[in-house]
């Protein structure tokens, strides 16, 4: 352990020979802090999974109901090696991803366009505001059942469910973000010669983007919920279908394995969105970029 520390430190010193001693100690401290956090996290994961596995093997809990980690792992391996009842695992992955992505794209584009339009044009907000509030008050998961009626087992029903879930989150953020744009910036752009359309595209949208991108993180999660719930209600393919079938076969390991795959998809999307956010919001002061600062 101490030897590892030594090599890490000397590597850091070699990499930046001109850094002041305080910068080097600061970096060393940061590295050590990061290592500590990672090892605590690893210990937590091992402890939880280990005690679950132990409880299952010792028959303290009923594996028929609660499953066990090694069983989940076997199920995953089985899916990847031999496919599922409804086709290869990659196909299920792809179908769910396609539904979620389509729902995410359609829902967020519609949310951004309508949110900015209603935020900018008062008369539109006055006309459509009440309708949007009305639709927003419907529990949207209920709509998944209606869409299943309309579209049957096909993909469009799942996409539609994802769209309605995504739309409202993005819409309200885009609307609020548009309303909060600094009035000075708008006045400045108008004086400099910007037409109302240019004010919208060059001042309002970039400025509201901080709000919009925050909602996109949540929105992809919602798109995934829409897709999976739609598949659980009725589908021919997809991870939601796998979860539902496993439930029907009293196979808790299958349910967990499906859940793990959904989570992997969500984390990958979150990662891509964070990269996009850093790219697009590079102009912001970088005080909140500390990876250890939290979620």
């Amino acid at each position: 352990m101490s030897e590892q520390n030594m090599t890490a430190v000397s590597a850091a010193q070699e990499a930046a020979p001109h850094d002041s001693p305080t910068a080097v100690t600061a970096r060393r401290r940061r590295l050590r802090g990061r290592a500590t956090i990672l090892s605590i996290q690893a210990v937590l994961v091992v402890a939880v999974l280990g005690s679950w596995e132990l409880a299952a093997r010792q028959k303290w809990i009923d594996t028929f109901l609660y499953g066990q980690p090694s069983g989940v792992w076997k199920q995953l391996v089985d899916w990847f090696e031999h496919g599922t009842e409804v086709g290869s695992i990659w196909q299920q992955f792809e179908v769910t991803l396609e539904e979620a992505l389509l729902g995410f794209l359609i829902g967020s584009v519609a949310g951004i366009v309508l949110g900015v339009a209603l935020g900018r044009v008062r008369i539109l907000a006055a006309i459509f505001g009440p309708f949007i509030k009305l639709f927003n008050s419907i529990p949207r998961i209920v709509l998944a059942a209606i869409f299943a009626l309309w579209f049957g087992l096909a993909i469009p029903g799942k996409v539609a469910t994802a769209v309605v879930l995504v739309f409202f989150v993005v819409f309200f953020n885009a609307f609020q973000g548009t309303r909060e744009v600094d009035r000075n910036l708008i006045a400045n752009a108008r004086i400099l010669g910007a037409s109302p359309w240019k004010v919208t595209t060059q001042v309002v949208v970039p400025s509201a983007f901080t709000w919009i991108i925050a909602s996109l993180h949540v929105a992809f999660g919602f798109a995934l919920i829409g897709a999976v719930v739609g598949e659980i209600i009725g589908a021919q393919h997809g991870l939601g279908l796998l979860i539902n079938q496993a439930k029907g076969n009293f196979n808790p390991n299958g349910v967990y394995a499906g859940t793990v795959l959904v989570a992997v998809m969500a984390l990958a999307a979150e990662f891509l969105l964070t990269v996009l956010e850093r790219r697009l919001l590079a102009w912001r002061p970088s005080n909140d970029r500390d990876p250890e600062s939290g979620l």
Binding site: D182, N184, L185, A187, N188, A189, Q202, V203, P206, S207, F209, L281, W283, R284
Partner: peptide, 10 residues
């Protein structure tokens, strides 16, 4: 303007 009005994202 009295307040800063340069565009922070440009």
């Amino acid at each position: 303007f009295q307040q800063d009005a340069v565009f922070p994202w440009k």
